[in-house]
Design a protein around this nucleic acid. Structure first.
Lengths: 224, 224
DNA sequence: TGGCGCAACCAATTTTGAATTGGTGTCTAT
DNA sequence: ATAGACACCAATTCAAAATTGGTTGCGCCA
């Protein structure tokens, strides 16, 4: 009785990223995943370490491993708050927080992170459909928050991100995204990414502010 | 057998605010408190309503009634985060958030709230000792966050406030507060309050930024 | 009639403990 | 030496019970 040959690392990476082993952007637990792939947990973790270092997956201690930025902790907590929050409230906060994130990312992001940010920006250009664009856009903004190098900033960003997803009026935003608006967004994303990569903190702050003001305008336009 | 006369409302208010019926700035539960004071819960709640409207106590649904601004929800959650947060991280975030809070408070605070804010500012001047000053200062900043009229801003403010109290290096700050520093703080508090009461959003933002920069400087000076 | 006391119920939060899940070290075999 | 297997640690989630402020309705009585 012969054992099947061990699968190649490349095959394993593809299988993990493929999404067939994930439920709602969340991968199966490591133990289950290793069993399913027919490898040991230690080898799986080595592969996951690489993927996480490359920014292709997101891991959180007691929470899981994700193909998208993970939800904020105890996100059910925001259910009550989300009800009394208006789109304007949320955009006000984003307009104060995210420009600062961009500025600090420009100052403190490592060269590797900056190169990765450029690739994430390009991903938004290549998005095949609206859903794909939203995913790429989400990761792009998340990466900037991560690059700020301040765990408090990152935590607050995750919370308003969860809040936005918990609010009902989020659906209205999708209908507001036409092709020309996506094109304009992409130009602004490019300006943000370039400023961050150049280490130009003030320019990055300004580019992010302009971007969010545009998002706010198109969001308010699509609501009563 | 005669019943004792019902206590006067004024006595009850004094008893509640006195602190003898509170544990660590948190009042006893309403049911217990009513029993202890020998009045019904409905009358107690009427008195508490008044006190809350005057800003002398703080109530939170499933949490309790407090003599100081209440802690953020599930504050134990921040225990993990507090460990890897430096004073610099926290001041960075405060410098982005609180100036915005002051600006929105100037724009949207009601005349009653603005009058109340002035009284809170005066309370910091009359503080008898260091502990009293810290309490008054805490309430002053909290009131500004409340006046911003944005529940998301208020929530984020409460979280960084809890984070600050959870961090260990908070104690170092007290030793850093000398009489001349308190005097300078008071001048800046006055500038903030005046700008907010005048409805001058930009001036309020600037005054708060200057104040926090000064706090940051004296904080970093007192730490290794 | 209006205020007060009383009771029951609703809603938001905390607390507690078990279960889940990523993180880390150790031991073995080849 | 390296990969696998196992035990244990740490952070989180989940569910159920308990706590606590919020609300309503009823009765009493001066």
């Amino acid at each position: 009785m012969t054992r099947p040959p061990p699968p190649s690392t490349e095959d394993l990476r593809a299988a993990i990223l493929g999404g067939a082993l994930a439920v709602d952007d969340r991968l199966l637990p490591e133990r289950t995943l290793a069993d399913r792939l027919g490898i040991s947990r230690s080898r799986l973790r080595a592969i996951l370490d690489d993927l996480a270092r490359e920014g292709l997956i997101f891991r959180r201690h007691g929470q899981g491993t994700f193909l998208q930025p993970p939800p904020a902790q105890a996100s059910e907590r925001f259910g009550v708050l989300a009800r009394r929050v208006s789109p304007g409230d949320l955009m006000e906060v984003r307009l104060e927080l995210e420009p600062a994130l961009a500025a600090y990312a420009a100052e403190r992001g490592s060269p590797e992170d900056k190169a990765r940010l450029l690739r994430l920006m390009e991903n938004t250009l290549r998005a095949p459909d609206l859903a794909g664009y939203e995913r790429a856009d989400d990761i792009f903004h998340y990466k900037i928050a991560e690059m700020s190098g301040n765990p408090v900033f990152l935590t607050l960003f995750e919370e308003i991100r969860s809040l936005r997803q918990a609010a009902e009026w989020t659906r209205a935003r999708q209908t507001a995204l036409g092709p020309e608006e996506i094109a304009e967004n992409s130009i602004q994303h490019g300006a943000i990414a370039n400023a961050i990569c150049a280490g130009a903190a003030r320019a990055a702050r300004r580019a992010m502010r302009l971007h969010l003001q545009k998002v706010e305008a198109s969001l308010l336009k699509s609501l009563p």
